Amino acid sequence: MKQSGWRGSEDLWLDEAYKMLVESGVESVKVMPLAKALNMSRTSFYWHFEHREALLNALIQRWEKKNTGNLISQTERYAESISEAVLNLFDCWINPDLFDARMDFAIRNWAQQAPDLKKTLEHTDQERINAIRAMFTRFDFSEEQADTRAHTVYYTQIGYISMMVEEPLSRRLKRIPAYIETFTGSYPTESEIARFESRHQSRITKQSG
């Protein structure tokens, strides 16, 4: 039975559209399936969005705000060393509340059939790389070194996302110090690693439990 007198909220419709996007791709994000999943009428959708395209644009904006916005913020966080700065960035790869890898993957797939989104994605990738480059530059790397290292850091993570790599968090954490050395040329200190791991202790405990 459809719910009457309640149209939901914009976030409610967006949340359901997000689920469909990451699970089945953009082709599945349609008004009728959304209404059915939420047990609401089709007309309730139009109370919040003018049309399907408006909903899709809202999904893109959510992705940009969360993934790109948080990534840039992490590169700008205070750090006493380049190792600590990269570990701040690595928070994005460990904490899905900061960076949603599933949505990034879905957006990249969607962009293959949407020229305008592909242009947005290219701009977004460059914006993220620029932020990582600026992070290296702050620690006195040359422009050439900062550019190369920024691309290496970013493309490595995008490779993880594009290949849908799944590995235990404990295994990835063991690689973190060597990754830092590879990307920065210096090995992180024990205290830097300890602070990083403490930020993610709840996830480590949950996965090992």
Rank of each mutant, 00 (worst) to 15 (best):
W6D: 15
D147V: 07
Q61N: 09
L21N: 03
S186Y: 05
M32P: 11
L173A: 00
T205D: 15
L71V: 06
F45K: 01
E64V: 15
R128F: 05
T182S: 08
Q3S: 07
A106F: 12
R77L: 14
F99C: 07
E192V: 08
Q157H: 15
E143P: 09
R138V: 12
A111L: 14
Q201P: 00
I193Y: 07
Y18I: 08
S41C: 05
L34I: 07
S4K: 13
A54P: 03
R195F: 05
A54I: 11
N95W: 10
E23T: 13
L21H: 03
R195D: 04
R42A: 09
N130W: 06
W63C: 00
I72R: 03
K174D: 15
N88H: 04
L121V: 15
F105N: 01
T124W: 07
E84C: 04
Y160G: 00
E76S: 02
K65M: 08
S170V: 13
N67S: 01
M164W: 13
R7M: 12
A150L: 07
S202Y: 13
A58S: 09
E50P: 08
S44N: 09
M164S: 10
A58I: 14
Q61W: 05
I176E: 07
H51F: 04
T120K: 15
R128G: 00
S186L: 08
R199C: 02
P177I: 04
E10S: 08
T137G: 01
A35D: 09
L21C: 03
F141Q: 02
A35G: 01
R108L: 06
N57I: 13
K119H: 10
L59I: 10
R128T: 13
S142D: 11
S142L: 10
N67A: 00
T75R: 03
Y155N: 13
N95Q: 10
